[in-house]
Every structure is written in structure tokens, then in C-alpha cells.
């Protein structure tokens, strides 16, 4: 049903020549998509108010969010080993989700991430949860990457827990490989974390995949 209405709106837009004002020559599908989304979501707030927060309205809100802030979304997963401090830690796993938008000369990404570490004492675990804002250049094959953001740290040994906040910063580079709308990239970095008293960090590698709208 949605596909049918989308097609009909596309046809109407192309026939009406609404795309002719675009700076690109010929029919521009991205402009049409944006207009379609605008049309589709004009009445969204009223519908949500009337019907409550249904799964459909959540889906529409997510659509709008992606439309407003993202040109690409992606996922990264990898491996961290202690570089500075954390002498007793073993290696850990790290994951992140992000949305990406071109911002002036670079690509800015906003993401959420988590990493987990263990030690020889199997009762102990160390988790980091963080938000990050970063800059890279997705159009370059070799791109430097810089990220920073707040981090929530949680340590647990048996039933005893400690938690607190830190600042996270990442410096590294990634190798961009574009396959149509997909962007695949290995990323190598140093990830530092500080509470402004102590600096520690990890050396890591991640494999990322991004989808560009």
C-alpha cells in the first residue's frame, strides 16, 4: 500500500516538474524522496496525538529523525587491548552505533557505544557506555578520525559495584571502501579515557559498515 502511494506521489512530482528547481540536471530521486517524506509526515504529529504512540507512529518518528539528521547510519564492532593503565585487564569487545551527516568539510557522526572487559578474576567485569561525537572524511580512502564524548563506567565484582563518569576521546584512522551505498571500513585507533585525574586507554581495531541514504 505504502509502495503504491509512494509510486503515485513520485509520478505526480515528476509530472508536475517540481524537481526542475534542483541544482542537479534531470530528475533527482533524492529530492523527490525528501518531498515525499515531507508530504507523508506533514500530518504525523496530529496523527500521533490522536492515536497515541503506536508502533506505526514510532516507525514514522524514526523515519523523520533519520530524515532530519542522518545521511548515513552504521555499526562498528571490534577489539580493544589495554594500552595505558588497566594492566590487569584482558582484551575486550567494543561496539558502536552511529548516524552520520556531512558537516562543512568533514563528516560528523553522533553515536552510542559500549565496551566490555574482563580480568582473570571471572567475577569481575568492567563496562563502558558512552556517547560520542566525531569527525572523519568518508570520501577519502584513508581518513583520520577523531571522536570524543562522555562515558559511563561500571565495575562489578560479585555483588559489589562501582560506577562513575569519564571523558572519552578517540584518535585513529580508517580505510573507506565504498560498495554502492554501503561503506565498509576497518578502523584503527587509540581510545583514551580520563576522569581528569588519571588517563588510561586502549589500542583497538574495529570493522565498520555504514549505509548512506
Amino acid at each position: 500500500m505504502i509502495g503504491k502511494s509512494r509510486n503515485s506521489i513520485y509520478k505526480i512530482l515528476i509530472r508536475s516538474g517540481i524537481n526542475r528547481g534542483s541544482r542537479f540536471a534531470g530528475p533527482n530521486t533524492s529530492t523527490i524522496s525528501i518531498l515525499y517524506l515531507l508530504l507523508r509526515h506533514t500530518a504525523t504529529p496530529f496523527l500521533i496525538l490522536k492515536r497515541g504512540l503506536t508502533s506505526k507512529s514510532i516507525h514514522i518518528l524514526l523515519d523523520m529523525l533519520i530524515f532530519l539528521i542522518a545521511l548515513s547510519v552504521g555499526f562498528e564492532g571490534g577489539y580493544n587491548i589495554p594500552g595505558v593503565g588497566f594492566k590487569d585487564l584482558n582484551s575486550g569487545a567494543a561496539f558502536s552505533l552511529y548516524i552520520n551527516r556531512h558537516f562543512r568539510f568533514a563528516d560528523m557522526c553522533i553515536g552510542a557505544r559500549t565496551s566490555y572487559f574482563s580480568v582473570e578474576n571471572s567475577a569481575y567485569s568492567l563496562y563502558f557506555y558512552g556517547l560520542s561525537i566525531g569527525l572523519a572524511k568518508n570520501s577519502w580512502l584513508f581518513s583520520p578520525v577523531i571522536e570524543f564524548g562522555p562515558e559511563y563506567a561500571r565495575r562489578k565484582l560479585g555483588s559489589s559495584k562501582e560506577s562513575g563518569y569519564g571523558l572519552n576521546y578517540t584518535l585513529g584512522f580508517l580505510i573507506n571502501i565504498h560498495v554502492e551505498k554501503l561503506r565498509l571500513y576497518p578502523k584503527f585507533y587509540y581510545e583514551g579515557i580520563t576522569d581528569l585525574k588519571t588517563h588510561a586507554g586502549f589500542v583497538g581495531a574495529k570493522l565498520g559498515v555504514g549505509y548512506e541514504f
Binding site: V84, G85, F86, L126, P150, A153, R155, E162, S163, G164, Y165, G166, L167, I193, T194, D195, L196, K197, T198, H199, A200
Partner: peptide
């Protein structure tokens, strides 16, 4: 953000990494 963070006395990284 950094100033606000600095105002909070929380040394979790020191305790975890030292």
C-alpha cells in the same frame, strides 16, 4: 561540558586503571 564534568569529583578511571 568539560567544565561541568571537572566540577564533579569522580575518579572511577583512577580506581579502575591504577
Amino acid at each position: 561540558f568539560i567544565l561541568l564534568f571537572a566540577a564533579c569529583e569522580d575518579n572511577i578511571i583512577q580506581r579502575a586503571a591504577s
